[in-house]
């Protein structure tokens, strides 16, 4: 049973396409595992479509005038001809399940991650991490594996830290988490996740400020390795 979900605000932004790719991927993965959030996203999407398309057309007369004005001076027929010149159609993407193997354990990647570039895995003790290259500057995403019995040393973040559990489980002083749990911590929290059976997580953090200050970097080497 999933106990941690994205906030309503996050679900709405996801539905509107307004989250950065690092976070959109996390919400997408969660929604695949959580029918409640999936339904909520569908409701927000419908609401947006209604207010965007139907809302306008309800005021029939004024909207029609505006509709023509929008393309005043543009040859619509040319645009349409250019688009319909091709007879190609987009076949729905074939299922291309992608698996990764980390320290001898195989995982099926969620669809949202299948086309992302990932760095080689590096590891310290029972932790292994691969960066997901999304080019969003200070917001960084990674895959993190904790092997059975491993833990992440207590740490804190100035920004936010999102942990989405993909496989296995871990626990901290606030509870036990399983696949699909979407755990967001801000700078106010510290935690010390321990995984008895091992786990794989997708993590996002926007901590650039924290780690560029040399002294913190020295004090918190684990944090910069992991997130």
């Amino acid at each position: 049973m999933i106990s941690c979900h994205p906030t309503q605000e996050m679900l709405e932004k996801f539905a509107n396409g307004e989250l950065p790719a690092t976070l959109a991927a996390a919400v997408s993965i969660h929604a695949e595992m959580c029918s409640e959030c999936k339904a909520q996203i569908a409701a927000y999407t419908e609401q947006q479509a209604e207010s965007g398309f139907n809302g306008v057309s309800s005021h029939a007369s004024s909207a029609n005038v505006n509709d023509e004005d929008v393309f005043a001076g543009i040859d619509i027929d040319d645009l349409i001809a250019a688009i319909t010149a091709t007879d190609e159609i987009d076949i729905a993407l074939e299922d291309k399940e992608k698996t990764i193997t980390v320290k001898g354990k195989e995982y099926v990647l969620p669809r949202a991650l299948t086309n992302m570039t990932m760095s080689n895995w590096s590891s310290i003790g029972k932790l292994a991490r691969s960066r997901v290259e999304l080019g969003e500057g200070e917001i960084r995403a990674s895959l993190l594996q904790i092997q059975p019995g491993g833990s992440v040393p207590e740490h804190t973040h100035k920004g936010f830290e999102l942990t989405l559990l993909l496989d296995g489980s871990f626990e901290d002083d606030m509870g036990v988490y399983g696949p699909g749990d979407f755990i967001v911590l801000d700078g106010k929290h510290t935690h010390n996740p321990v995984s008895h059976e091992g786990c794989l997580c997708y993590t996002v953090s926007n901590d650039a400020q924290h780690f560029t200050q040399g002294i913190n970097k020295l004090l918190n080497p684990f944090g910069s390795f992991i997130y």
Binding site: A21, D95, A112
Partner: peptide, 21 residues
């Protein structure tokens, strides 16, 4: 914004449900 042409949107919001694909 990121100069990436990875077109991830269809992975995040599939136009066809994954169970169908």
């Amino acid at each position: 914004k990121t100069k990436k042409e990875d077109n991830l949107s269809d992975d995040f919001w599939p136009l066809v449900e994954s169970s169908e694909a």
